[in-house]
Structures are given as C-alpha cells and as structure tokens.
Design a protein around this nucleic acid. Structure first.
Lengths: 163, 163
DNA sequence: TATAACTCTCACGTTGACGTGAGGGTCAGA
DNA sequence: TCTGACCCTCACGTCAACGTGAGAGTTATA
C-alpha cells in the first residue's frame, strides 16, 4: 500500500487554485467528497482530489453545469460493471465532442465577422476627424464606397445609438 | 422620408425570437429603446430594433455580458465625432477578437482531449462484459496496455467515484 | 359600444456558482 | 497549557438573465 498523503482544505485550496468555499460547495453538490475527516471534523483529502477538481474544470469549460456533472457521476455510479460504465462515459463525451465542435464553428464565424468589421472600421480613419457621428451612417469616403457595411457596424449606427 | 413601419412588442418578440420580458428587460438596461410609444403607453419599435437585437446576441456569444454591452454603448455615445466613435468600436472589437481566438484555442485543446478519451474508451468494449468497475482502474487488456489513460478517464476512476 | 386580444407596470421568484460574515471549535508548536 | 493559525457549520448576499404572475389599462374589430 502506497503512502497516501492527506491534506486539509487550506492546502488543497492552494494547490488547486479554488477557494475553500468552492471546495465545500463541490462537496455540498456531491462532486468532491473528502477521503476522511479528523476526529474534530477537519476534511482530509488525498491527491485524487486534485485530479477530480481538474476534471470538473474541464467539464465546466465544455459547458457542463455543476448539476450536470453531478448527474453524470450519479449515472456512472449506477452502472454495475466496468465496461458499461466506460461505455456511458464514452457516449457522454461523444455528445460533448459534437457540441464542442459546433461551438468552435460558431466562434470561427464570429471571428470572421469581427475581423471583417475591424477591416471596415480601419477605413474610417481617413474621414475628416470631426465629422459628426450621424455622418457615419451615410459616409461615402473613397475607401468605404465599395465595402458593404458589416452588420456589427451597422447595428451601432442605428436609431437609438446616435443622438 | 421612407415609410417606417412601427411594430408593437408582440410582433417584435415573434420576429426576434425573444420573449416580451426579455425585450422589456433590455430596455431596463438601456440596450433597446423603442422608437416611440402610443398615447396609451404601448411600445413601438422600428426595424432597427431587429438589427440591434441581433447585434446584442452576437456580442453575447462573444462573451459580453449585458452590462458590458450597456457600458459599451454608453462609451460610444460619449465620443463626439464619428471617426473617433468608429475607432472606439474598432478597439473594442480587436480586444474581443483576441479573446475569441484564445477561446477557440482552448476549445480545440479540449476537443483533442475528448477525442483521445473516446479513443481510449473504445478499447474498453473488449473487456469481459461483467468486469466490476474497480477492475477498470487496473485494467491491462491488450488494447489498453500501451495506451496511457487520459486524464479525463482517470478522474472518473478515482476514489469517490467507485464504491 | 362591447369584447377579445394585447400591453402596461410593479414586484417577487429562479438557477448557477459561489462570496461573506458570524460565532465557535481544533490542531500544532512553544 | 496556551496561543495563533486553521477549520467548522449555518445562513444570508450577489450577479446575470430572465420567468412568472397580479391587477389594470389599451386597441382593433364586430
């Protein structure tokens, strides 16, 4: 049996970068249970806790809410044999992989839109410096003339934005 | 002067896909002001509202909070001349472009991790169907043997997950 | 002029993910 | 044994982004 080092919540907080409140909160939700407690009630964690916390963060980045993760764990604990559990895990990950790819796609589209808006706005520098804001709506400067106004720029030039 | 069609909140709600509550909420925050009101107090919006709502959604997808967007608008309204305003817009967008690219990078890393985990879990199918969960921790099936256990799989096989 | 459909303004409720004390025990070293 | 650092359990607060009535007024149409 390997030597298992137990740490108290303060140390785990430092090592994991989470606040103590967060760690206790994870426990409330059933996501992170301390390996044991001292007789006085202090929580004692082993190094697996760090791995677990990392995992939780990953899933959060993937868009899982903490209740989602809890449900996830509960489900996995419900399956009786190993391969079945790994199968459940696999399918959950597969779903999230698809969602992640979709998100990446959306972000790439937004990236392109932002880049186009920036390109367009770059040409604004050549306007007369003190042109009033309302003028931008109908600006016909040479550089602009052929460019279509990006939607993300148009929206700002609309109605209530400009006095 | 072109004919401007005014719509009431119900119609705008339908066309934009937002609830009426959401539209009123946007107004509370100063993000979307109706073009006018009827004598009885009904909100009347013009088509610019749709553009504006779309813009808000875009910014939300980019990670702006509604208060962020409000601040954004206020700032833009503060600048007196057109080119300066466009410059402000440009720099705000530039910041978000960088952040978006960073997010895409993180998601791509997660994507790879998920894919690796799925690959690994695929090899679990070959285990004896009724192997108990705890066995997975020390599984030495042929297909696994050379593969390193991905962190996202390891975390699930740790301590409190398995009875 | 009814009446149905629509809209108005409060104002409290909800979910997620913690923050922030209050008041009081626990542990390790001198 | 004592003290300072650490930890405990309530339990209310917060921020974002709306949801959900309640009770009352407004409009378009028959």
């Amino acid at each position: 049996m390997a030597e298992v080092i137990h740490m108290r919540i303060g140390e785990l907080s430092e090592k994991s970068g989470r606040t103590e409140r967060t760690l206790r909160f994870y426990e409330e939700l059933g996501l992170l249970v301390p390996a044991s407690r001292t007789k006085g009630g202090f929580r004692l964690y082993d190094s697996g806790a760090l791995i677990r916390i990392h995992w939780i963060s990953r899933l959060q980045e993937l868009g899982f809410s903490l209740p989602d993760i809890k449900e996830f764990l509960t489900e996995l604990q419900g399956t009786p044999d190993g391969p079945a559990m790994m199968g459940d895990l696999r399918s959950a990950y597969a779903v999230k992989l698809a969602a992640t790819r979709a998100t990446i796609g959306r972000l790439r589209a937004l990236e392109a839109e932002l880049a186009a808006s920036i390109d367009y706005l770059d040409t604004c520098k050549s306007c007369a410096p003190s042109t009033h804001k309302t003028a931008c709506r109908a600006c016909r400067e040479d550089d602009h003339a052929e460019m279509e106004v990006p939607a993300m720029v148009l929206a700002v030039q609309t109605s209530s934005s400009i006095g």
